[in-house]
Simulated scan of single mutants.
Amino acid sequence: MANFKGHALPGSFFLLFGLWWSVKLPLKYFHQMGLKRSRLSQQQQRIEIIEGAIKTLFAVIGILAEQFVPDGPHLHLYNENHWIKLMNWQHSTMYLFFGVSGIIDMLTYLYFNIVPLGLDRLVLAIAVFSEGFLFLFHVHNRPPLDQHIHSLLLFGLFGGCVSISLEVIFRDNIVLELFRTSLLIFQGTWFWQIGFVLFSPFGTEWDQKDMDNIMFITMCFCWHYLVALCIVAINYTLVYCFLTRVKRSTEGEIIGIQKLKSDHTYQSALLSGSDEE
């Protein structure tokens, strides 16, 4: 949809997944540092299956929104010698690839003995690459600011594609995972930024040919990614502090129980000794 809602919808999806990953991935990393791996793997399996299902659901919602809005193509691609709403079809294609990625996520963790390890990451990398490829040819013959703000999105998309591709080989690498997360958060906020600039809900219009606007948007790109990095860093720190606190309280309870058992054993021994005398 070439309007504000059409950019806010995918932006919200990407932002929600990015925020979720910024909590889930540090949790997984710190658990793998030394907690119960066997129990964690089963729990992680369920979480990944649910995540894949939600990703697929989001993709289906996106496709339906693009196709069946009042001015949408309604699954008609070609009619009377002309293409119908190709902008909506491009967005639908983007959602389609992420839907396939969600299905592969579910299959990977449902049939982990059959599906090759790393296939979920590979398909996700393909989905991100397809999104970037579509946007690369998305804004030809459009105003300079429109072209520029979409081209900046490509840096995040192709950077994410490279990072996720490396995860196929270096699986569970926390640095690559957090980098991917920061780019996803950036992508979500940047879709909102595109909506506000090109289709402002407040009625204010940006001059699409003003170079100052282009310079500001370039600077704004850096601010968005800095905010994404800060969100990842803050959530990583909060997860670490939370797990450390839980671990200390658990160890304190164990020590208290052991002390009570020790005192009880000592008292029993004293009573036994006094009876014998």
Rank of each mutant, 00 (worst) to 15 (best):
N173R: 01
I174T: 04
V175K: 09
V175Q: 07
E177D: 10
F179Y: 09
F179W: 08
T181Q: 02
Q187S: 09
T189E: 11
W190M: 05
W190P: 01
W192K: 06
I194E: 03
G195S: 03
V197P: 02
F199P: 02
S200E: 10
P201A: 09
F202A: 12
T204D: 08
W206K: 12
I214K: 00
M215I: 13
M215L: 15
F216S: 07
F216K: 09
T218L: 05
W223S: 10
W223M: 15
H224W: 04
Y225S: 00
Y225P: 01
L226P: 07
A228Q: 00
A228S: 12
I231Y: 04
I231D: 04
V232G: 00
V232T: 03
A233N: 12
N235P: 02
N235I: 01
T237K: 06
V239M: 03
V239Q: 01
Y240M: 08
F242W: 06
L243R: 01
T244K: 03
K247V: 04
R248G: 08
S249N: 12
S249F: 08
T250P: 02
E253Q: 12
K259M: 09
K259L: 07
K261V: 15
S262T: 12
H264R: 10
T265K: 06
Y266V: 15
Y266A: 06
Q267V: 14
Q267W: 11
S268V: 14
